[in-house]
Design a protein around this nucleic acid. Structure first.
Lengths: 215, 215, 215, 215
DNA sequence: GCTTAATCGAGACGGTACGTCCCGTCTTAGT
DNA sequence: ACTAAGACGGGACGTACCGTCTCGATTAAGC
């Protein structure tokens, strides 16, 4: 089973309101969900992660910071991981869309460069790394993370590569998924190990893995 | 700052008794450290991680399982991460030494294949992934993990590559550290995302990244 | 300050609709109070108390059981204690009226026997005991319980005794309030401690405390 | 089933350390129970009850006030009721022992006067009333309260009365338990309803219920 | 053989966070 | 206007571990 995937998303509206569970079955009466509270929670979680790390990211701390009751969090999110997923999905859809349209070797290179920048420079990159990490510790996180983030992006990336191959822009020697792993893996690994991502890494990977070998 | 590194270690004895803290000076009298307790703790930690995941890996659970008092653990290890590091170092020194001697393209390929097997098939591979993960959540873990595991292996791997280049066996287009990241990163990333490692991934990576490009 | 009192009430209509809060003036327009909802709440409270005890008597449980919104309860009753008071007043007016008319030693004895039965056999007896109990825990309950239940009954009981003394039927040696306490106290105490009320207790109390001592 | 009882206890040592559960099975090693913490909890509970009422008596408040961790309370007491029982038993053994030795009508009268004072003037009296109340709300409390407090005192009181009857000091017309209920009930009832206990109540009860009727 | 000191098991301790329940207030839609 | 529905900020519940501590019992080197 192949269920990972890392980047992209059609720039169009995908999920303006990323409710963790599908839809809350539209209540016929009663108060509706408080959008301000929802945003306060997302931002509080994001801020706490960036400022104090995943260790300080407790439900109580999020509630405190967001000025929200604990129960309000438990009402809408089954775990802090889903909160982070909500922010990650919103942010990476916004700031790191998988290129649509006619692909070129250049647009793929740009996308990977953007991904490298996202990982090392964007607060949402920290969220991505934290989720990759937490997925190692907890099967529930792994499942959710794959379903809601990795798989959808991987689908778009695979499609991107296929179209580029069709257009004769690239000719990878590995199958599409393995190719993506070979391109994205080094970037993620560098980020995970705290090392920076060398400037020529993306270029060389694209050159060596995607470009036709002369002979 | 470059502080990652993933595999190897001279097969020779490096640390038969991996005391996390330096050495307990010289015990002028009284009982010495109980080796049975030490091993019980290491095995309990390993078993718990493999059987129930990192979430169930609490000091109390380790003590319970090892039949040891909590204080006995705190006396010798500053955190559960150091326990895992002890087991990881022992195991990967034993089962995944960085090849010494005259390197060939073939021996590098074998080492990477062994690494892939280690990640996906060996219990110690789970420990490695758990530590990579925990390093994202806690700076102390990151520091220790790099100092005691990643850095030493990376030094040996860098040396291995340099000798292979000198021998004309390989001609990578990236600098040594980036080359290792590009080779190891995809394997780790596949393991982290729960996907298997495709059979031809190592071969193709070696071929595309280390072999001279014809022209 | 003397504010207790335990039984009776003129059999005539005293409060068909015991609105805890005064009365909602005159409803100038819109729906009037839903009598069905009011009764549903009273019965739900009563049932829950009898079936699962005071501990399970939460506003949310009452609302759930009555099929009524929480707010509907809060609109009409300031607390669950007032709900119980409403049921208690209705029930004890109905099933345990303080005898009116010309009193005899016999009618007083009957009233006390009825009270004993009320305490041990009637669901409303459980309500009375629960309110006595809750009055120990909460001053607001104590105040309301005395004002709305104990004081009015005590007034009637005191009057009953006075008329009986005037008629030469009894000649207690204590002042009226103390006499009532001496008669009612043992019954309540037996009920509170879970012991049954011995069959001859009422008779002997009446004989020893109300009848003239021979000498 | 008769299980109530209210006052007394041989003046001799009965339970210097009223551990809720019998004995903690003498731990062969490890820290022993912290007596200071035990006392801090008992006093905090007592103080909170007297100062702010049973409603404010939460485990968290007790822990806060006693400067103790919540878990330390849960380790030794199954509920706040048992804490109150511990204080009540210690206090009433100390300040309201059931008279031993040769009983006279006078010593019984004194004991009842002491009981009246205990109920209305002693902080421990508030504890007793609170426990009587809580026993109405919770069967577990009722059970514990009867087993640990009411039953033992009732046994001593019954014995006291029996000895007094044998000595020809009194000649009650009710059986021993009912006699005690008839004497103690009015006092407790007055205390429960917040009324004071009239000065001549005890005297008249003793005179009318225990003294031989002339004729 | 006796002293001395470090280790061991056990586990109590002050804490923090967990996830749940209910409080009493409020807002929304429907009748 | 009143209802059912239910979200909201709050706070206590009882549990699990945290890392520190104290207690005897055991063990082995040095006297």
């Amino acid at each position: 089973m192949r269920l990972d995937n890392v980047v992209g998303s059609l720039p169009g509206k995908v999920s303006r309101m990323p409710e963790s569970s599908s839809q809350p079955s539209r209540p016929r009466s009663g108060s509706r969900r408080d959008e301000a509270a929802r945003l306060a929670v997302l931002h509080a979680a994001d801020d706490l992660l960036v400022e104090h790390g995943f260790g300080a990211l407790t439900i109580e701390a999020i509630a405190r910071r967001a000025g929200v009751a604990k129960q309000t969090i438990y009402r809408w999110w089954p775990s802090k991981v889903e909160i982070l997923l909500d922010t990650l999905i919103e942010d990476s859809d916004k700031r790191l869309p998988v290129p649509a349209g006619k692909p070129t070797a250049e647009s793929i290179r740009d996308y990977l460069r953007g991904f490298a920048r996202f990982l090392t420079g964007d607060p949402a990159g920290k969220v991505l790394l934290a989720l990759i990490a937490q997925a190692q510790h907890d099967p529930g996180t792994a499942e959710s993370f794959h379903q809601r983030y990795l798989r959808p992006r991987r689908d778009q990336e695979r499609d991107l590569l296929a179209r580029a191959v069709d257009a004769g822009e690239i000719s990878p020697r590995l199958d599409p998924d393995a190719t993506i792993d070979a391109l994205v893996g080094p970037l993620v690994y560098c980020a995970l190990t705290g090392a920076g991502i060398p400037g020529d890494l993306v270029d060389t990977l694209v050159e060596d893995l995607l470009m036709p070998r002369p002979r």
